[in-house]
């Protein structure tokens, strides 16, 4: 039962990541491979504030969201100029640079040694220490993110970013400065990803750079593509499926040494098969 709760918490975290990336990739059509960078900024800022400064978890999360958005703003100023494949490659580049900072700016992040002993959240005196209450909290955040995403998508802002996805040149003719919208959605996506980062940090109580590598960005991309581009429900399906998949594989009984690689192989095959036969994903409205 406890292990099941563990999986559910992971589902909530990846669900949030999936939703945030879908806003950028699915709705705006920008292939960003930098998700893990903002996930990581959120995790590290939260962890540092909790461990070094004894802050309240929710306040720390707030700061983490702002920090992540700020980093996204800086990167986005450069990134938003590009389109298509160059956007993807440049975002990959930024992802690597940020990962490098996590790994090497040891004075702040402690490098590969990581940050241990991250405390669990304290909600007005009640410590959310056991797994079940943590799950409840995570699901609450997931719901919040879902509602916010839906709001964005249904607003006129949402229509604008969809228009950018369909034909960026055309929308410029109508007086919309596409670059501003691309920047804004990128920043919003990064802020949401930071929420997931904060949840992750306090849950596992230990973070190190390895979680926030390019591979992780690819994993979240797989969630979004599988679930369906521009489908919020799809991202939740994608997250649930890909979180459960390793457990099913474990059930099949691959020896431990192979299990991790098998998982990677399955993700890869999934991406290829999806591109070949269903590029819009399970419930998506858009194909890349």
């Amino acid at each position: 039962m406890d292990y099941f709760i563990h999986l559910a918490i992971l589902f909530a975290i990846y669900g949030i990541l999936g939703l945030s990336l879908n806003l950028v990739v699915g709705y705006t059509g920008l292939l960003s491979v930098a998700e893990a960078a903002f996930y990581g900024v959120g995790a590290y800022v939260t962890a540092l504030l909790l461990v070094n400064a004894g802050w309240n978890f929710f306040a720390a999360m707030g700061v983490a969201v702002i920090a992540s958005a700020a980093v996204a703003l800086v990167i986005g100023l450069v990134l938003s100029r590009f389109g298509g494949d160059y956007y993807a490659l440049a975002s990959l580049g930024f992802g690597v640079i940020i990962y490098s900072i996590f790994l090497n700016w040891q004075a702040v992040t402690n490098g590969p040694l990581g940050i241990p002993a991250i405390p669990r959240p304290d909600f007005f005196g009640y410590v959310i220490g056991d797994e079940a209450s943590y799950l409840v909290m995570s699901l609450v955040f997931l719901l919040l993110v879902y509602v916010v995403s839906r709001f964005i998508v249904r607003s006129s802002f949402g229509r604008a970013i969809r228009a950018i996805r369909e034909d960026e040149a055309a929308i410029q003719v109508f007086g919309y400065r596409a670059i501003n919208y691309k920047l804004l959605i990128f920043v919003i996506g990064a802020g949401i990803a930071a929420i997931a980062g904060a949840l992750y940090a306090s849950y596992i109580t230990y973070i190190d750079p390895s979680t926030f590598s390019v591979n992780e960005s690819i994993f979240v991309l797989a969630i979004v593509i599988l679930g369906g581009l521009a489908s919020l429900r799809g991202s939740l399906f994608g997250a649930a499926f890909l979180v459960l998949l390793p457990e099913l594989l474990r059930f099949v009984g691959f020896p431990d040494t192979i299990a991790a690689q098998m998982r990677q192989a399955v993700y890869g095959v999934l991406l290829v098969v999806l591109m070949l036969y269903r590029p819009e994903g399970l419930t998506g409205e858009y194909r890349l």
Binding site: Y3, P112, L113, G114, P116, T205, D208, S210
Partner: peptide
């Protein structure tokens, strides 16, 4: 031999 897996192992 890394923190993340060590943490996960102990948690389990």
């Amino acid at each position: 031999c890394d923190g993340l897996d060590g943490a996960n192992a102990v948690q389990k």
